[in-house]
């Protein structure tokens, strides 16, 4: 038995089991109503990522509405399924860790939970990351973070108060001193 075969032999069984599990989970369409019924939950998750500080937060910007719309209409099925399942997983993890509902957790507890999730779901090394994404879709936490950021930064409140935005600049100043507490331009 050469080395390559040995490896296949070892992972053979578990490999087959995971494969059929993934086949089931990836092709099955999760119930989209779960997104609407979790709207308040998604709003709190978004607020945990981008909270209100001296500037508006994700909830002020109603990030959850566009996040749900993107999940329904702009997201491939695998990624969306991962997201819906991620919501449930997060809920049960929360119960297990803090013995209470996410909605009743403190901001610190919520952050701790999401940070933990982010570590676990980190994509593998870049090359595997790409393959992983193609076959399995994007994982829950990267999607949540990406969509929350985009939802906030393209919203009226996010763009004009969280960031800096000018619809018609009218002039170009190519290289100027950075103002104190200058926000990043919302659009390039």
């Amino acid at each position: 038995m050469n080395r390559r075969k040995a490896i296949i032999g070892l992972v053979g069984l578990t490999g087959a089991a995971t494969a059929s599990y993934f086949f089931y989970t990836q092709t099955k369409q999760e119930d989209l109503n779960q997104l609407d019924s979790n709207k308040l939950f998604i709003a709190e998750l978004a607020e945990t990522i981008i909270p209100r500080t001296t500037t508006p937060g994700a909830k002020d910007a109603k990030a959850e509405e566009i996040i749900i719309l993107w999940l329904k209409e702009c997201t491939d099925r695998k990624t969306r399924n991962n997201f819906i399942r991620g919501l449930e997983k997060l809920k049960s993890r929360c119960q297990a860790a803090f013995d209470k509902d996410f909605m009743h957790c403190s901001a610190q507890e919520r952050q701790a939970l999401l940070n933990q999730f982010e570590k676990e779901e980190k994509p593998f090394a870049p090359i595997f990351g790409k393959i992983q994404k193609k076959f399995l879709g994007t994982a829950f936490m990267p999607t949540l973070k990406e969509y929350t950021t985009k939802a906030y930064c393209t919203s009226f409140l996010g763009a004009t108060q969280g960031l800096a935005y000018v619809l018609i600049p009218s002039r170009r100043e190519a290289c100027i001193p950075l103002q104190t507490s200058q926000k990043s331009w919302a659009t390039q």
Partner: peptide, 26 residues
Amino acid sequence: ERLSWNDLYAQTEGVGASFKDKITKP
């Protein structure tokens, strides 16, 4: 250009006020 939120979020770990601060600054 200076990287902005659409690049920074994927490179910035963590959540909360410090995450927000990093992705909204140039």
